[in-house]
Amino acid sequence: MSGSTSPAAVQATGIGRVFDAKGGPVTALDGIDLRIEPGELFGVLGPNGAGKSTLIKILSTLLLPSTGSASIFGLDVVTETARVRRIMNLVAGGDFSGYGLLTVREQLAMFAQFYGLPYREGMAKVDAQIASFGIEEIRDRKISALSTGQRQKLNFARSFLNDPWILFLDEPTIGLDVSAARDVRDRVRAFQAEQPGRTVLLTTHYMAEADEMCDRIAIVDHGRILAQGTPTELKRMVQKDALFVVGIDALPASMSLDSLRALPGVISVAARDADGSDASGVGSPMRRLAIGLKEDGALGGVISTLAAGGAHLQEISKSEPTLEEVFVQLVGRGISESDEVSDGE
């Protein structure tokens, strides 16, 4: 995809951002290169202070970059802001925004005007979004009386009013309960499914959310992209070999782990007990074999050998690393133990 010459949904080249702070300049972004194709759901995964929100602010025209350039569907985010704002929208999580004295419908109507929609068309869209989000019962309720989940639904309803080509979602599920978060994810998927080419840039520090939703993910830390690719590609970065777990009742007496290791295509074989702990010691109750292979095709030889030796196979599964493991390997620490960096986020 990076070799394509047509304008991308997002094209960022060398984006950097430095904030002035009391203790001296703080670098929030440091040479971000990014290309997101139309129709992609692209995730930016990183700990607090990694620069995720700063990146979204620059791409959504809220903030100027210190260095580099960026465009949205070919429109420069610094010099063509009015046009960019017509084709994009933004939702941030956990900010409890809204005019408490307005009702849900009044606030949406106001934003419809700000989006430049003629009054009747705007109100029709407002009512359509209210129906679409299933918030008819709170349409005349004041925003100050809404729950967190309801406010975020309202926020999403607002963001769909101008039929954006690209939606920037900055931690949209933060602070939401499981049900509300799932609802938000479903809405985002439905938004993309409604029209081909709709693009979403999602920042999150929820690994499962990124893994579940995103076509591609960039892992950022300290303002830099450490790696990007599909979730599968990222996982392959930390586990280049295929790893299978084979459940058996017992290893046949005529067979040893070394004999399995000697099979073609086999890199490693380790015995595990029922809990997955190491069981290679003498007399250990082995239940599973963790088998590393150069390629998936080598598994056939291992299975045949085990079956020929009289082992009873109970399960076979392919083991993949989690995004958490990818993150730890790339960043050097877990996402929850990240440093709080004051970078303007």
């Binding site: 046009r83 005007q113 430049g116």
Partner: peptide, 30 residues
Amino acid sequence: PISAGSAPEVRPFGPLRGGAADAARSLVAS
């Protein structure tokens, strides 16, 4: 369908209206 490169010419909700009309709409809404 949305496609890269078509954004400068095509608006999601019709042609780009004049600045004065948009400004008046925003002023009334605010």
